[in-house]
């Protein structure tokens, strides 16, 4: 079955820019405007964060955006309502990212069905580990043509890398260093070793590097070792200022892509 994620990686082999934001932040109803403005600024893929009260894999910036979003009244149900009709204006791949518990409470099957209905292409659920996915989730995701995006870290063994590659169908999310989101990155020597080691393995899935990518320098650096990179915390932080969403978003993306 055709999936926009696969299509993206067929069409584009380098410098792919994926951006994460937390749905419901800064304002509850910003979701669609943020997506449309990111698309207009030229990003290739968008990860829409579903806020969770206890995001253990996230650093302070995304913890805060999640908290504000929940206070604003965001929920999975609300998010799906906002996304109805998004495919009339947006054609790039969209991924939902969040923690397992709200998905379980929504109901796995109902959640996947709704994802397919509104036009979601993939899921990133950091606390859904490989073995649970294989045993209890894979089949349902597949039925609704949803790719599960799995993470790897510098500590992931070659053996497990191969298992993850085998279980992946969209791309592999390569976490730059073992950390929570938003950690500073400088592409240190040991990271280079890791990036090169993974690159040399010639995995079947494309890779995007994430965590700690925040500007043109770190983005370009990451793109030397993978098809592209993912920006999360730095973008969420950029949504803080007083300018209009429009200006904030296009400034941020221009800065990452063109350095201005």
């Amino acid at each position: 079955m055709k999936n926009r994620i696969n299509q993206l990686f067929l069409d584009k082999k380098e410098n792919i820019l994926s951006v994460y934001f937390t749905a419901g932040y800064p304002q509850l109803d910003d979701t669609v405007s943020i997506i449309e403005k990111l698309v207009a600024s030229g990003v290739d893929l968008i990860e829409i964060g579903m806020p969770f009260s206890d995001p253990v894999a996230d650093g302070p910036v995304i913890q805060n955006s999640s908290l504000v979003s929940l206070r604003n009244g965001m929920s999975i149900e609300k998010l799906f309502d906002q996304l109805i009709g998004i495919r009339e204006t947006v054609s790039i791949p969209l991924i939902l990212m969040g923690y397992l518990n709200p998905v379980i409470q929504y109901g796995l099957e109902a959640f996947c069905r709704k994802c397919a209905e509104v036009g979601i292409d993939g899921l990133i659920l950091p606390d859904l580990p490989l073995n649970e996915y294989q045993e209890n989730y894979r089949e349902v995701f597949a039925r609704y043509n949803l790719h599960n995006i799995l993470l790897i870290t510098p500590q992931t063994s070659d053996k497990r890398l191969k298992e993850i590659d085998e279980a992946s169908s969209g791309f592999i999310y390569m976490v730059s260093s073992s950390s929570t989101t938003g950690a500073k990155s400088s592409v240190a020597d040991f990271q280079k070793d890791y990036f090169e080691r993974v690159k040399a393995m010639e995995l079947t899935n494309p890779r995007l590097i994430g965590f700690g990518i925040s500007n043109k320098e770190t983005f370009d650096n990451a793109c030397q070792y993978a098809e592209g990179a993912i920006i999360g915390s730095a973008f969420v932080k950029a949504l803080d200022g007083n300018e209009s969403l429009d200006v904030k978003i296009s400034n941020f993306v221009n800065q990452v892509v063109k350095g201005v």
Binding site: F52, S53, D54, V56, L70, S75, I76, E77, Y99, L100, N101, P102, V103, I104, Q105, Y106, D127
Partner: peptide, 19 residues
């Protein structure tokens, strides 16, 4: 039942699955 702190057990949560 839900997932908190890496295990499936009983969890105090809203109907949306927030703790």
């Amino acid at each position: 039942p839900g997932v908190l702190h890496s295990s499936r057990s009983f969890v105090m949560q809203t109907k949306d699955g927030q703790i």
